[in-house]
């Protein structure tokens, strides 16, 4: 059991085991180091009821929390992208001539609004999942079934009731 825990942690940290796997600048070891720091908590009394992998609870906690932090990083990357989208709309706002006089300008405005909305939807989904991963990592859920129910429950909902973007004539 101890061996499994060790290999689970070292796999997540990614030490050596994947040779050529950590490439192209997408290795983010910071998340793992932070998670390991939080792995020093004592086992909560409810861990005996937990189903799932044969590995120790401590490694599970680390993995859930690590995923939560990783996703939190993804969220901030997306937020930055959304900000750049907004900051690059000079001269293309509703009252500008590019919009009032050019069809492409007014089309862009509609497109921009739709993507603002969609990125917001994705970011909210990230927030929901980050929270649930964190909860799973801090034993908020009593058992496997509860975790499953939590992740099956879709709390993030689209705003407005038009499901499709530029293809509204298509049924979904």
């Amino acid at each position: 059991m101890g061996d499994e825990r060790h290999s689970a942690i070292s796999t997540f940290v990614g030490t050596g085991g994947d040779g050529g796997g950590a490439e192209d600048g997408d290795a983010e070891r910071g998340d793992a180091r932070t998670s390991l720091a939080s792995a020093g908590r004592p086992d909560p009394p409810s861990w005996h009821e937990k189903g799932g992998s044969g590995g120790g609870l401590r490694s599970d906690t680390t993995l859930w929390s690590g995923a939560s932090e990783g996703l939190s990083g993804v969220r901030s990357t997306l937020r930055k992208g959304a900000t750049e989208l907004d900051e690059n709309q000079a001269g293309l706002r509703a009252k500008d001539i590019a919009v009032t006089e050019l069809r492409t300008g007014s089309a862009q405005l509609a497109v921009h609004r739709s993507w603002n909305r969609y990125l917001d939807l994705i970011v909210r989904e990230c927030v929901e999942l980050t929270g649930k991963l964190e909860k799973a990592g801090s034993d908020h859920y009593r058992n496997e079934q509860e975790i499953k129910r939590a992740f099956r429950a879709e709390e993030t909902r689209p705003v407005g009731n038009d499901p499709s973007g530029g293809h509204s004539s298509r049924e979904r």
Binding site: T11, G52, G55, W64, A67, Q145, E146, I147, K148
Partner: peptide, 14 residues
């Protein structure tokens, strides 16, 4: 390898 990472119904749903 089941000892790496999270497995189980909760993990699958996630």
């Amino acid at each position: 390898d089941k000892s790496e990472g999270l497995v189980g119904e909760g993990a699958s749903a996630a």
